[in-house]
Design a protein around this nucleic acid. Sequence first.
DNA 1: ATATCAAACTAACAATTGTTAGTTTACAAT
DNA 2: ATTGTAAACTAACAATTGTTAGTTTGATAT
Lengths: 191, 191
Amino acid sequence: MRIIDRKTEIINCAAQLFKNKGYSAVTMRDIAQALDIKAASLYNHIKSKQEILVLIIIEIAEEFTRVMNEILESDAPTINKVERVIQLHIAITIRNSDALACLNNDWMHLTDDQLAYFIRMREDYENNFRKIIKNGVEQGEIKANNQEVMVFSILSTLRTLYLWYGKTKKISAEELQKSMSELYLKGITNK
Amino acid sequence: MRIIDRKTEIINCAAQLFKNKGYSAVTMRDIAQALDIKAASLYNHIKSKQEILVLIIIEIAEEFTRVMNEILESDAPTINKVERVIQLHIAITIRNSDALACLNNDWMHLTDDQLAYFIRMREDYENNFRKIIKNGVEQGEIKANNQEVMVFSILSTLRTLYLWYGKTKKISAEELQKSMSELYLKGITNK
DNA sequence: ATATCAAACTAACAATTGTTAGTTTACAAT
DNA sequence: ATTGTAAACTAACAATTGTTAGTTTGATAT
């Protein structure tokens, strides 16, 4: 076992390829070639192509689930909770944008139990964020406009952050966090 | 030629399948089966699988390009232009969400000229929206916060609208338009 | 009745897919 | 020196892929 073991190297390499072309369009030979080995050699480390997908997606999904539960259970004001959700997405995007892209685009290629597990986590995540917003409205912190639109707008942006981050001139995590909070909390117009 | 000809039926059917599983994971036999014919029969109507993808994506992309240019050239206030962009995405989402999903997820499977053409349209679209925001800042209509964050947040939401629209309890195009404008222009917080 | 033609069919192809079996290599520990 | 082991290899497989060639069907117009 090295500092980063071979299996992890394969997972990371695969995630990068999946990000660019999608799970289905990437072959085991593609992954092998990127690592400068033969396709059959991959099977010394992983069980199947499916397993690679599962390992990429589930770990990230569980992290989202875990942190979201922490945020939900805290007794901070709603605005603070929304900020922490934004922070969570930024942090994971910076740490592992390849896996995030894969989670977003290729989750439907999971099968059976793993697929059901993922879908449940995803639904729970959305519902928990919905609860945060709803609670904010009840506490008078947040406008009583269409809550669904708020929920999906914010989550859409956060989920596709990986498409933007690092693309234009570099922006720090702190600045991104600040700008996004400002945008969603106060809007874009003057006055 | 019927009211809706066979080729269009194939395109629409394929778009729906592509939406669910992605271009690469859908086989010609899948498309054929959904139409209750054999795969080889498809080739009486279309030239290749690639052609289906091109026809789905390019038409929509050109529509976005065309309308964006109209909006950009108008002399309406910035806020009005942003609202019209929102309106554009809502309209196309409602009319053809399958094709929109395909454009979003499978554009990278275009090849050669079509790929270059698409990428150029996409870049132009983003740049044009960026110009609208920038102009709004210069006119004093919009806050001088991080403009990039505004651009990508709004476009992210608009581009993934197809994932949400029609999912929860139905909301009219007008109400969606109103809620989204309100959200982005004024934010979610009270006061 | 005959000809036309769109649109389906059957059968097959060459290439590519994920995967398995069995073997070799190179280095570390005994 | 011998053994063990991680990690590569070659060769091949059965299935699936997009696609082509040639044929049949069924309705419409002459």
